[in-house]
Computed example of a mutant assay.
Amino acid sequence: MDRPEPGQTWEVGRNECASDAVFRALADVSDRPLTELPPLQESIDVDSLDHVLAVSSEIQSLTFEYAGYEIVVEPARIRLRERS
């Protein structure tokens, strides 16, 4: 399977928390190993991100900037767009 291009969508795995999906998607699109990505906690409260999306059916999406990308997190998918 080809790697998605920036601006495309990554699915959140069935047992995967949103923060892990963000790391996986950004590593894919930026061609950087996970160990070279800045701490996600510097951009958003990771525990709150995971909790809110796991328990709320009213939250449609959360958007934030991280490592030069706009990240849109929805309950079942992650979208990334490179910031210019």
Rank of each mutant, 00 (worst) to 15 (best):
E58D: 09
R14V: 11
S57H: 01
Y69G: 09
I44F: 03
F23L: 15
S84E: 15
S19N: 12
R3A: 14
I71V: 15
R81H: 11
M1S: 15
V72K: 02
V55A: 01
S48Q: 13
L49A: 06
D47N: 06
Y69A: 05
Y66E: 03
C17I: 15
L62G: 07
R32W: 07
T9L: 04
L80Y: 00
D50S: 08
S57D: 11
S48G: 08
P38R: 09
L80A: 02
P6N: 06
S30G: 03
D28Y: 14
L26E: 00
H51F: 07
S84M: 07
S84A: 10
G13W: 10
W10I: 13
S48V: 07
E42W: 07
S30M: 06
L34I: 08
I59P: 05
V52M: 08
E58Y: 09
D28S: 13
V12F: 02
E65C: 14
R77A: 10
S56A: 01
R3Y: 00
R3L: 14
S61D: 10
E58I: 00
T9N: 05
G13I: 09
D28N: 13
V52S: 11
S19I: 13
S84H: 13
E82Y: 00
F23C: 11
G7K: 02
V52Q: 09
T35Y: 13
A67F: 08
E16L: 10
A27F: 03
I44A: 07
G13E: 13
L80R: 00
T63F: 06
E16N: 14
D2Q: 09
M1Y: 07
L37G: 02
R79C: 04
G7W: 00
